[in-house]
Design a protein around this nucleic acid. Sequence first.
DNA 1: GAATATTGCATAGATGTCTATGTAGTTATG
DNA 2: CATAACTACATAGACATCTATGCAATATTC
Lengths: 140, 140
Amino acid sequence: MNKYNAAALISRINDQAQKLITTELEQQGIEGIVPSHGGVLMFLYRQDGLSVTELAEAIGRTQPTVTVLVNKLEKLGYVKRVKSRSDQRVTLIALTSKGRELEPVFRSVSDRLNETLYGNLSKDEGLELERLLDKITHRF
Amino acid sequence: MNKYNAAALISRINDQAQKLITTELEQQGIEGIVPSHGGVLMFLYRQDGLSVTELAEAIGRTQPTVTVLVNKLEKLGYVKRVKSRSDQRVTLIALTSKGRELEPVFRSVSDRLNETLYGNLSKDEGLELERLLDKITHRF
DNA sequence: GAATATTGCATAGATGTCTATGTAGTTATG
DNA sequence: CATAACTACATAGACATCTATGCAATATTC
């Protein structure tokens, strides 16, 4: 019989994943960075020069939250704000060289997290997990 | 090939589950209650008179967080604090009648959440999901 | 083309959770 | 038995995120 504990398990895994990311970043000497900051940077590594709103959509936070996240990343020198030419309302967030230097660190943290999540599963189990989770996301 | 997006999916599902709970409680006319409050009450329905520390363990939050949660639940009249006879340091949290009245509401919210999570899965898929998630929790 | 609506970002205030610390009661030790 | 160590809870301060709102730039409509 189903135990109906998926919600509790998901919540717990999520908490521990966040904690793992934070701990790993600290160990790599990166201070004052939370997982959401990492999320922003990871998306910028894929596509530099996204707008605040696009980043919010990408990392699943609200726009004001991303404004605050970018404030901090900017203060730390990892990104800079550039006004869009075509639409002066739009602020494009661009990586600085210092921000780009961090890419390997974030990649390794991401790898470490995935190793923790997937390390005990076969390839098929991993695929099945992704399939089931993906199915659930469409229910909300 | 694995997409290695389990972390993102889990985070997203967790966020939406939290939101669902909050929305449902509001619709049931219960104001100012967050999922963690519900967690506390759900455990008290199973076993009344738990200590603050036991509750913290049960819902996976820290002890100071539970103190704050209990403060609010007490202010709203759902629980009361009772000093333990055997150990005066221990504060037992007990449901009031008003708190007990809420049990059906929380049960229905919980059912609603599980329906959302499991509703599109077969019984076997639900079991497999639980098995995989459980396997992952042991990796941290 | 001027008035209105929409869009993008920033700011303010609130809230939930955390770590660090304080306080009181209990247990252990010399 | 008195002192030290431990345990349980509360409080304080910090921080990430949210909603609500303001402001400025752009698009739409009459």
